[in-house]
Simulated scan of single mutants.
Amino acid sequence: MVQYNNMKHLMENLRVKTNIPLNLVKKVPRKVITSLSDDQVYPQSCLKASNDYKFFVNFRRDPIYNRVLEHVSYGQGSEYLKLLYDRNDAEILYSISSFKKNDLYGNPRMYEYHKIGMISPTTLRYIKVLSDLKMHFQTLNNFNICEIGVGYGGQCRIINAFYKPATYCLVDIKPALDLAQRFLDNYIIPSTLSYKTMNELDKKNYDLVISNYAFTELPRVIQDVYLNKVILNSKRGYITYNEITPEEFNSYKANELIKIIPGSIILKEEPLTDPKNCIIIWG
């Protein structure tokens, strides 16, 4: 979700936002960058939030964490809410109070919105995705779901507050998974959860695969792993596509993905958050 042209830009931006001297940022042990969010500093924020209760209490306001997640603006939240009202889905709107429980942990920035009161705009975005899934697939009950790139588990919790999937596999880097588990352990989740890194994934048929930006922020060589293990074996899919990776990632473009994924089509992202963004959906 973070729009960086290259890793040098990312590191400089991190230095400015966090006041960490650039020479110290560069001293973080080097590793293979597997995605835009795997910048060696964001994972440390996730790890600290999963292990340190005092940090977990406010992790959704951490400047480093906010470079990747929890940066949806008040205005964007208003657009998501307007779309929900325009769709006039009584079931979704009636459940807002249940969805707002997502904001009980991590101390997110919340704003007062007309008719619904205080809520995080990030939570409104997760509700909008749920509304999309309901509109396209009707139900997710008894589904085996896989989500690629899970943040702190917010989308998973929103889905499980409305539907009852049979299983839900969360896939991300290990520090993010640890944080997601700490977050989700605070709730009663009807589906059986599993937490897996890319290399722990088995090749498996899923009823639905979801990825909000994360899949399209990966290098092509990593995308191929997920295509082979998950995406091409899933009956249905919902991918929020963005085009922000550096040239060296050689990430798949939207028109390439719909040629690879059988039955997939491109839909307009509503509301549009970037001119190149779109939704890739199938099934």
Rank of each mutant, 00 (worst) to 15 (best):
N5S: 13
N6E: 07
L10H: 12
L14N: 06
L14R: 06
K17H: 15
T18H: 05
N19D: 10
N19W: 03
P21Y: 12
L24P: 00
K26F: 03
V28E: 11
I33V: 09
S35L: 05
D38S: 14
D39V: 02
Q44I: 14
S50Y: 05
D52S: 09
D52M: 04
K54T: 14
N58R: 11
F59R: 01
R60T: 12
Y65C: 13
Y65D: 07
V68I: 15
E70F: 14
V72L: 04
S78I: 05
K82I: 12
L83G: 01
R87L: 10
E91R: 08
Y94N: 13
F99H: 08
F99M: 12
K101N: 10
D103E: 09
D103M: 07
L104D: 15
P108E: 10
K115W: 09
I116S: 05
M118G: 02
P121C: 11
P121Q: 08
L124Y: 02
L124A: 04
L124M: 04
H136E: 12
Q138V: 11
T139N: 04
T139F: 06
N141R: 01
N144M: 03
C146I: 15
E147A: 01
G149N: 12
Y152Q: 00
Q155V: 09
Q155I: 12
R157K: 15
R157W: 15
R157V: 10
I159T: 02
K164Q: 13
T167H: 11
L170Y: 09
I173M: 14
I173D: 12
D178T: 08
D178V: 05
A180T: 00
I188W: 06
I189R: 07
P190A: 08
S191M: 09
T192D: 12
Y195M: 14
N199V: 01
L201H: 00
I210N: 04
S211A: 06
F215C: 01
E217A: 13
P219K: 03
P219W: 07
P219V: 03
R220C: 00
D224Y: 01
N228P: 03
R236F: 06
R236S: 15
Y238E: 01
N242F: 01
N242H: 07
N242Y: 02
T245Y: 07
E256K: 08
L257S: 12
L257N: 09
I258L: 08
I260Q: 03
G263M: 10
I266Y: 03
P271Q: 09
T273W: 05
P275Y: 08
P275V: 10
N277W: 03
N277D: 14
N277E: 12
C278L: 06
I281R: 10
W282H: 03
W282Y: 04
